[in-house]
Write a protein that binds this DNA or RNA. Sequence first.
DNA 1: CGTCGTCTTGATCGTCTTCAATGTATGTGG
DNA 2: CCACATACATTGAAGACGATCAAGACGACG
Lengths: 247, 247
Amino acid sequence: MSQNPATLTPAGLGQLRCLDCTIRLRAVCAYADLPSLGELERIKRYRSYASGQTIASTGEEPSVVGSLVEGVAHISTLLPDGRRQMVGLLLPSDFVGRPGRSRIDYDIVAATAVTLCTFRKADFERILAANPAIERRLLDMTLDELDAARDWMTLLGRKSARERVASLVLMIARRDAALVGADARTGQRVPLRLTRQAIADYLGLTIETVSRQFGALARDGLVVLGAQRTLELRDLPGLEAAAGDAA
Amino acid sequence: MSQNPATLTPAGLGQLRCLDCTIRLRAVCAYADLPSLGELERIKRYRSYASGQTIASTGEEPSVVGSLVEGVAHISTLLPDGRRQMVGLLLPSDFVGRPGRSRIDYDIVAATAVTLCTFRKADFERILAANPAIERRLLDMTLDELDAARDWMTLLGRKSARERVASLVLMIARRDAALVGADARTGQRVPLRLTRQAIADYLGLTIETVSRQFGALARDGLVVLGAQRTLELRDLPGLEAAAGDAA
DNA sequence: CGTCGTCTTGATCGTCTTCAATGTATGTGG
DNA sequence: CCACATACATTGAAGACGATCAAGACGACG
């Protein structure tokens, strides 16, 4: 995808069968039948990226596409004077790359160690054309991403700094809870997994403002800040009110 | 789509054949072959909306989807306290509605007189499943919308009021020029077609700030403001610099 | 000619940024 | 094991930018 070296067939995943894959039911291959899954299996190739490594960057014409299997990556755009805005968060099962378009106009950077399950773009497009079920899954995923992008636009265009930080905390808390089939709850411990700079770039704020708003939420008893970029929810209804989208 | 009354088969379009349709080559039906186009033709139904009329609103479960044939419509979200953010602009050939999902979480409002070419959602989904070419077109259109949404996130998260207004003027000027196969140019007359309130909701600003920024761009000789929400480009390179995405 | 909706202009205020310093965790080599 | 370096985070003070509040101007339309 980028010209940077990416480790191929990382330890532990080299032989992973698609049917055993942790993201099998949520990734772009979720609706694939056994024959097309077999075809994907034949041509897939795992690639690993270290935290901070660039997966793809603006202006490139990536020759591979794929699914994020492990880790977290950021999609961001950069204005010429250095201002950066994150425009997407890639989590396991998310699709990376864009079939039918060559050049990309944003940067994709690994935020943690990342493993991708990749395909050569041309191969994948051929399979896509022959398997409407896979194409349909990609359409559904893209529509979900569009909804998420629009929610984020409302946050960026209309919410105060406090509302933005509260919204982000809730989003991460809910996503983490959903992974174990639960709802967010008071007392929940939430690993943010993002640096202050990443949070600021995501929320359209500065790191100082983000830091102050975390302080304010803690002072108001809505959260307790912990070490290593974690926090604990102390007042879920209060946090929801602070996020600004409850009535 | 909404419960509001929409005029059916408006004058002039009642008998329009798909092959004569002005948006035939850009809409969701662009890749459709003749048999499936015939099927769409049989089940399509034109609906008209007056300027200001709601086409669909938050929480509804629209039973129809379709293509915008004529006019302009806004997609916006509303926070409980009344703050509004526009998250999309629908122009002729754009697709309205979302296959595979029932409830929608934003409002769609006609900004001018609007004509939609609609299909019952269930019918359209059946055709979609049987015609990968149509599904592929919808995927491409959705990917384009996602790119546009991400560009807009950068504007909302990181650009100053002046940059936002300059960016919007350029976007509209370029889109208008592209309709006649040209590039934007100094001297071009640009009809904005949006009220100050719509512009403010689109840019995440207030109407006063929008007004002041238009005044400032005019004072700096970048544009000349005209009547009826039009303006004229006076210094295209200057405007591009003011928009903030040039190097 | 008066009314309504839209737009502009002015004065003031609050929020967030900017600039600067300090604090805290983690790791490195002596 | 500790001084030191580095990256990340917090805190403070000042200022800028856009929001808010408040008039007034303009244009369309009865």
